[in-house]
């Protein structure tokens, strides 16, 4: 059952996931090639100095991409469900709606994690050649905040898209914008070090939000 439910989600999202993986990996490669070019032109020590003195991250270019891809994946996955209330078909399956909702969200989170992991591995391997491990982990640990924001934006999009009324949908959008803002307060590497576990817990809890929308959909809430 899990496999077949994931198959449905896969059919909806496969081309998007491919495009997202290629784009994010492409951006990651581009940034790393740029880093290599600077190393060749000015020497590695120049980069190290900039990192030490100016808190430079060198990967700022991708900071919004996870959020954008999270939102897009949510739309690709849930808009077809809401088209002519197709979600009724899914919720009519002989599986509890909380399980169905969590499995759908689980698929999205897994797919996004895969896309993000690919980009993360590219950054990690290429950065490790020219930067000290401390620098690499400092920069990449900050990128985890963006990836986590990407996953949360996906969960929020699912919640917003399934919501049956426009009034509440608007409230959900406002709530989502404010909550995502927290992930972009600082671009200093390591600044989220202590906050990350709380943000991760919040994101895990946010995976239940789509269940709230499904429950409202099921009770037929209207504007």
């Amino acid at each position: 059952m899990l496999r077949i439910l994931f198959l449905k989600e896969y059919i909806k999202t496969r081309w998007f996931i491919l495009a997202a993986a290629l784009t994010l990996s492409g951006f990651s490669l581009y940034m790393m090639m740029n880093l290599y070019r600077i190393v060749n032109l000015k020497g590695a020590m120049h980069i190290w100095e900039v990192i030490l003195q100016k808190d430079a991250l060198f990967i700022d270019l991708i900071q919004w991409l996870p959020v954008i891809f999270g939102i897009l994946l949510g739309l690709f996955q849930y808009v077809p469900e809401m088209h002519r209330k197709c979600l009724k078909l899914t919720l009519h399956l002989p599986v509890s709606y909380t399980k169905l909702g969590m499995l759908m969200v689980g698929y999205g989170v897994a797919a996004l994690t895969g896309v993000f992991l690919l980009s993360f591995i590219i950054l990690w391997t290429m950065m490790s050649r020219v930067l000290m491990p401390e620098m690499v982990s400092n920069i990449l640990s900050h990128s985890l905040v963006w990836y986590l924001a990407g996953i949360l934006s996906y969960l929020f999009t699912a919640w917003i898209t399934i919501e049956p009324t426009w009034k509440r949908r608007l409230i959900n959008i406002i709530v989502s914008v404010f909550m995502l803002k927290i992930f972009f307060i600082s671009n200093v590497a390591g600044s989220y070090y202590a906050f990350m576990p709380i943000l991760a817990l919040y994101t895990i809890a946010a995976s239940t939000l789509s269940i709230l929308s499904i429950s409202r959909f099921k009770t037929g809430v209207q504007d």
Binding site: T98, M102, I171, V175, M179, A205, A206, T208, L209, I211, L212, S215
Partner: peptide, 13 residues
């Protein structure tokens, strides 16, 4: 789970 998500929503707001 619906109760939890409702509570979670209100806490977020």
């Amino acid at each position: 789970m619906v109760k939890f998500s409702k509570l979670f929503f209100y806490l977020t707001v």
